[in-house]
Amino acid sequence: MAAEAVFGEHGAAGSTEDVARRAGVGIATVFRHFPTKEALIEAALLRHFAELTTQARALAEDPDPATALGTLVRTMIETGSTKLTLASLLGERGEFPESASAASELLRTEVRRVLRRAQDSGVARRSVTVDEVYLLVRGLAQASATMPTKASTLHRAVDVVLAGLALPAGPARP
């Protein structure tokens, strides 16, 4: 979606005009669908959550729970800076829309399912909680949002996180 790209790249400086230009439509078309900039940002955030939730639901059924967890965590980190930007723009007034909170909770439920499945299959540490996964995701997403990070560096950092979530080899299994 053009709004995700524009606000992800430019934050609050992004404009509805930029979104219209990126989408290849006129500004009137944007305002016809989204009467305010806040409505446009909310729609972009809801779309982000919906896409991740759909992916997580599919990954919860993947025959390889380790790959499923890795794919989901990697996607959440790689798209996290845009999500953080959109969420911060919506929460500027101290009010987070109920629709975004509900969409976030749906995603969290699906992430928990993917994590639990990896734990039940013996490929992820049983002691890891979804809150810890979210903290790791948010940390790398925030870091990549606030400082230029080469894609290869981010990819390797995600590998480190995934290695930390995995069960260690050998008899000791936390």
Rank of each mutant, 00 (worst) to 15 (best):
E42H: 04
S101P: 00
A23H: 06
T149M: 15
R57G: 06
L59D: 05
H33C: 06
L162S: 01
T75K: 11
M147R: 15
G24F: 04
V161Q: 08
L140T: 03
Y134T: 12
E132D: 09
A163V: 03
A60R: 05
R108L: 13
R93Q: 13
F34E: 01
T85S: 15
G139L: 12
G122A: 11
A118S: 12
L52I: 05
E61Q: 11
R125E: 13
T71N: 10
T36L: 01
A143F: 08
R113L: 04
T85I: 13
A145R: 15
S144Y: 01
E105G: 05
S152I: 09
R93A: 13
D131T: 13
G139D: 06
S127R: 08
R108A: 12
K150T: 07
K83N: 08
T36G: 01
A151L: 04
R32H: 13
R156G: 00
R47T: 07
A124T: 05
E92V: 13
R57N: 07
K83H: 13
R113T: 07
T109C: 09
L107R: 09
A60L: 06
P65E: 09
T146N: 15
K37Q: 08
R113M: 00
Y134K: 10
S99Q: 13
V111M: 14
A166Y: 03
A157I: 00
L135W: 10
L52E: 14
T129F: 06
E105K: 05
P65A: 09
A39Y: 03
T85P: 10
A23C: 07
Q55G: 02
E98T: 09
V160M: 05
S121N: 08
L84E: 14
A58E: 08
E105A: 12
H33S: 14
R125K: 15
D131Y: 12
R47M: 02
E110W: 08
R57S: 09
P97D: 04
R108E: 13
V123E: 08
H155S: 05
K37Y: 02
A60G: 08
I27D: 00
P65T: 01
T53G: 08
A151Y: 03
K83V: 07
L45T: 09
A43F: 04
G164N: 09
I77E: 04
D159V: 01
E42F: 02
A103P: 06
R32Q: 11
E42C: 10
R32M: 03
A39L: 06
L69K: 07
R112F: 11
